[in-house]
C-alpha cells in the first residue's frame, strides 16, 4: 500500500508539471507604409484621394498621422492628407511618409498628368514554397478584381496530404497569422485552383501563408 501511495503522489507531482506554458514566435518585422490606392495617371484638373496603410513591427495595421508630399507641386499638388490635383502636363513623385524618434518609413509612386484619371487593375505573380519538410510548392498569380482579389494557383502546385487542417492566409507577417485574413482550408492538394477573396485590397497584404491550424505550425509562404 505504501508503494501505491508513493506512485500516487509521484503521479500528482508529474501531473503538476503538466501546465500550459509559453512558446514564442519570432514575429518582429520592419515597420512599413504603403499606398493602397494606386493610379499611374491623374486627369488634367481632376482630383484624386490617395490612401495608405501603416504596418507596425508585428505587421499590424495602425492608424498614424502620415504626410503626403509631391516632388513637383506645380504639376501635381497634394495636401498633407493625400488629396492630389492634376494641374499641368507632366509628372511627379507622390510620397507618403511617417516618422517617429525610432524610425521613418516612406512609399513613393510616379504619377503622370493625362487626359483622364486611370486606375488599372493590378497583378503580381510568384512562387509558393514550403518552409518545412512537408511538400508545398507551386506558382501563383495574385490579381486585383472589381470586388477584391483572386489568388490563382498554377497547375504545378503540390501540397502534402499528410497534414491535417492546412489553411491559407493573407498576412503582413510571414511568421505569424495574428492579424491575418483566413482565406480558408486547403481542399486541393495538386493542380490549378483559385480563391476569390472579396473586399480585400490588392496592396492590403504582403504574404500568402500556409498554416497547419490544429498544430499551429507554419508550413509555407509566398511574397506578394
Amino acid at each position: 500500500m505504501k508503494n501505491f501511495k508513493s506512485i500516487f503522489f509521484l503521479s500528482l507531482i508529474i501531473l503538476a508539471s503538466s501546465c500550459i506554458e509559453d512558446d514564442f514566435v519570432e514575429d518582429m518585422i520592419d515597420p512599413q507604409i504603403r499606398f493602397t490606392s494606386i493610379i499611374d495617371t491623374i486627369g488634367f484638373n481632376d482630383t484624386y484621394q490617395f490612401e495608405h496603410i501603416f504596418l507596425n513591427n508585428i505587421g499590424e495595421i495602425e492608424q498614424v498621422d502620415a504626410i503626403y508630399t509631391s516632388s513637383n507641386p506645380d504639376i501635381i499638388p497634394i495636401t498633407e492628407e493625400g488629396l492630389a490635383s492634376g494641374l499641368e502636363t507632366g509628372e511627379a513623385m507622390i510620397s507618403v511618409s511617417y516618422e517617429t524618434e525610432d524610425f521613418s518609413v516612406k512609399d513613393s509612386l510616379r504619377v503622370v498628368v493625362g487626359e483622364s484619371t486611370v486606375t488599372s487593375l493590378q497583378k503580381t505573380s510568384g512562387q509558393i514554397m514550403t518552409t518545412t519538410f512537408y511538400e508545398l510548392e507551386g506558382d501563383f498569380e495574385f490579381i486585383e478584381t472589381e470586388n477584391g482579389v483572386t489568388l490563382s494557383i498554377a497547375e504545378n502546385y503540390k501540397a502534402s496530404t499528410a497534414l491535417p487542417g492546412l489553411y491559407v492566409y493573407l498576412s503582413n507577417n510571414k511568421n505569424s497569422i495574428a492579424n491575418a485574413l483566413e482565406i480558408g482550408p486547403v481542399e486541393v492538394f495538386s493542380g490549378a485552383h483559385e480563391y476569390q477573396i472579396d473586399d480585400v485590397g490588392f496592396d492590403e497584404f504582403s504574404f500568402i501563408v500556409y498554416f497547419c491550424k490544429p498544430f499551429n505550425v507554419k508550413v509555407g509562404d509566398a511574397s506578394l
Binding site: 500550459i20 509559453d22 514566435v25 518582429m28 499551429n216
Partner: peptide, 19 residues
C-alpha cells in the same frame, strides 16, 4: 495540452494554449 503561442515582440498571446 498545447502551450500558448506568444509574440516575442509584444509578448501578447497570439493563440491561447488549451488542455
Amino acid at each position: 495540452y498545447m502551450n500558448n503561442l506568444r509574440s516575442s515582440t509584444t509578448n501578447e498571446i497570439i493563440i491561447a494554449g488549451e488542455s
